[in-house]
């Protein structure tokens, strides 16, 4: 029983990170119709940035997260302007954004390797106070990850539903053409959404950083998991990404503990293929 509870809690913690990553991915898809396969690389860079800020500047963890979020948002906007944006044109295909992503993955991963080296980095002890209940142990950091993710998601909802900029993002997602006619600068909206998406991924990496080490490969699975989540939740759907993130977190945590530690990815991805074979547009997809 306590193992089930422990596993569930772990699933929710991972699910928080998944949700944040998938949120960015789904917003970028919804607004710009870009398959950002470099999303996991942005996540990884976020991890290294926060490590650098904390270790070299000795900044407090939460301030470091804030700085990382801002730095990565600016970085994301620049990358979008220099690569994805100019690759859009009359001859571009759905493959164009994939090719840009492949190029970016090469550039990012090898730049990180050149700057930080191949050795994994660790943040050391942060928020390691433990809570004990019902034979379950939870560190403060794990609780804070979930709390931070929930607050972020709530803030994002508020931003999208209540602010002018947020509403113009929603309008562009629903119909870019009529949004343009309404006087919305959809190109600027695209940049902002991309910056937000990258920032969310970096925050997720920052939150998770105290639990694991920081290494070149940490983002690889985030991209595929992110896409699995937004396919399940319906591409472009924000609630789908949030719910899908937590569901996938629970599935992967539970199946890794109870079914098979080595083959749990087979189960996670196999379930997705099965779902798509039965419902070709995803669980919450239209039609």
């Amino acid at each position: 029983m306590s193992m089930l509870l422990q596993t569930t809690i772990n699933g929710i913690v991972i699910g928080s990170a998944f949700s944040l990553v998938a949120l960015g991915l789904t917003m970028i898809w919804g607004i710009m119709h870009i398959s950002n396969f470099a999303h996991g690389s942005f996540y990884m860079i976020g991890g290294y940035v926060i490590w650098t800020i904390i270790t070299l500047l000795g900044v407090d963890f939460w301030l470091a997260i804030l700085i990382t979020a801002v730095v990565m948002a600016i970085f994301g906007a620049i990358v979008e302007r220099l690569t994805f944006r100019p690759a859009e044109g009359p001859f571009s295909t759905p493959l164009s954004s994939l090719i840009v992503s492949i190029g970016l993955i090469m550039i990012f991963n090898n730049s990180v390797l050149a700057i930080w080296g191949a050795r994994p980095e660790t943040l050391g002890a942060i928020n390691i106070q433990e809570f004990h209940f019902l034979n379950v142990t939870v560190t403060l950091q794990r609780v804070l990850i979930v709390v931070a993710a929930v607050i972020l998601i709530a803030l994002l909802q508020f931003f999208l539903k209540r602010t002018t900029l947020g509403m113009s993002i929603e309008a562009t997602a629903q119909n870019a053409e009529s949004a343009r006619l309404m006087g919305i600068n959809t190109s600027r909206v695209g940049s902002i959404v991309f910056a937000m998406g990258v920032s969310l991924a970096a925050i997720a990496a920052g939150l998770m950083a105290p639990l694991t080490n920081i290494n070149i490969g940490m983002g690889d699975h985030m991209t595929t998991y992110g896409f699995v989540i937004i396919i399940l939740g319906g591409m472009g759907s924000i609630p789908g990404a949030i719910i899908g993130g937590f569901i996938l977190g629970l599935i992967s945590s539970l199946s890794a503990t109870y079914l098979t530690a080595n083959y749990y990815e087979v189960i996670v991805f196999g379930v997705l293929i099965l779902i798509l074979a039965i419902k070709p547009t995803g669980l919450f997809g239209a039609k």
Binding site: W29, S35, P94, T224, F227, V228, I231, M235, N262, Y263, E265, V266, F269, G270, L272, I273, L274, L276, A277, P280, T281, G282, G285
Partner: peptide
């Protein structure tokens, strides 16, 4: 047979998942 029932990005991700399963095995 199962994956080609899907279209566009859904097909891309379904086949990507198959590939990850294969490599894991």
């Amino acid at each position: 047979l199962p994956t080609l029932r899907t279209k566009g990005a859904y097909f891309a991700i379904a086949t990507l998942c198959f590939n990850i399963i294969f490599t894991t095995v």
